[in-house]
């Protein structure tokens, strides 16, 4: 068998090379597919579902069995009418209802929307702050660098979980409007989280700054912003992308933990974390799996998918990869 001679003389761009390496990683592709799937699930689901996020359903007790009231004209109050709680999955409520009579599937969808939104927003804010501050610190060095790094150290020392719990309870006590709680949550998590990104950016810039191609750009006479944006930042991009992707997963985990503890997304809004919270009641844990397993599984799948994606990207970007 002889080796086929290449007849095409086209060289491969680094971008194509990265893409090729990425596509070889089956796990990364799986991760990407899962994320796309979940996004579709959430968006299409929300568009399609007839139920509201916290709409409460009623049922009537007929012959000692709970039957859901489907006729909207029937009066809501009556002798045998009560809240349709903890229903098992049936044809009208694919995942049943929760302990307050709300449709679980719809809440799952809303929860997805909220959790994903929080995660993306948080990462974006972290990137914005981190890249800016890290970039400035790395590029200008000196006392600017020192100052920013002190700030980073201080924030690092703050134990994140306790602080978030405290802020949360302050907000609850002061009766912070529920709607804005989500934004506040994003704000706090980003304010604590940007340090990781800033460190990486600063490190990269410090090492890149001295390399010859930067001196070359200076010799050619490029202006400073141009040098930063057109030359330095693209070199930091790969690591940033990887960090951002992995970061999304981590934010989702943190947010769900907070919501589970009651300090995150408040009722009656849905978040995957606070849906799992229902498991604290042993009866629910035992009998109503439909209430707490799906949101947990969603968290797991989503975070795993982002982790696969991030890891695959990291491998693809690494020029020293053997295969």
């Amino acid at each position: 068998m002889s080796v086929q001679n290449q007849t095409t003389v086209k060289p491969i761009t680094p971008g194509q090379l990265i893409l090729k390496r990425f596509l070889r990683n089956k796990l990364a592709i799986a991760g990407f597919a899962i994320i796309v799937g979940i996004l579709l699930f959430v968006t299409v689901g929300l568009a399609v579902t007839p139920y509201g996020e916290y709409e409460i359903f009623y049922s009537e007790e007929i012959n000692d069995k709970d039957v859901e009231i489907t006729d909207p004209n029937q009066s809501v109050t009556g002798d045998n009418v009560e809240i349709y709680k903890k229903a098992k999955p049936n044809s009208r409520h694919l995942l049943g209802t929760d302990k307050d009579g709300r449709d679980v599937l719809t809440r799952l969808l809303h929860g997805g929307k909220v959790s994903l939104f929080i995660a993306f927003a948080c990462i974006l804010v972290e990137l914005a702050i981190g890249v800016t501050l890290g970039g400035i610190a790395g590029y200008y060095g000196g006392w600017v660098d020192g100052l920013i790094m002190r700030l980073v150290d201080v924030i690092n020392c703050i134990p994140s979980l306790p602080v978030m719990l405290i802020m949360s309870s302050i907000m609850i006590a002061n009766q912070f409007p529920q709607k804005y709680k989500i934004y506040a949550l994003i704000g706090i998590m980003s304010l604590l989280g940007w340090v990781g990104i800033a460190r990486i950016v600063r490190g990269q810039i410090l090492s890149l700054r001295e390399q010859e191609f930067m001196v070359a750009t200076e010799a050619v006479g490029l202006s400073t912003p141009r040098r930063i944006f057109k030359h330095l930042i693209p070199n930091v991009m790969p690591q940033l992308i990887v960090m951002a992707t992995l970061g999304v997963g981590s934010v989702i985990l943190t947010e769900s933990a907070l919501s589970y503890l009651g300090f995150g997304v408040p009722f009656p809004y849905a978040s995957w974390g606070n849906m799992v919270n229902t498991v604290n009641d042993p009866i629910i844990m035992k009998n109503n799996l439909n209430m707490w397993v799906p949101p947990g599984v969603m968290i797991l799948l989503t975070v795993m998918a982002f982790n696969f994606l991030g890891d695959g990207l990291r491998d693809a970007f690494d020029p020293k990869m053997k295969r």
């Binding site: 080796v3 086929q4 290449q6 007849t7 095409t8 086209k10």
Partner: peptide, 13 residues
């Protein structure tokens, strides 16, 4: 056809 020929060669290799 050059592209696909290139891919085929690559696969053979």
């Amino acid at each position: 056809s050059i592209k696909s020929k290139g891919k085929m060669e690559q696969r053979k290799n």
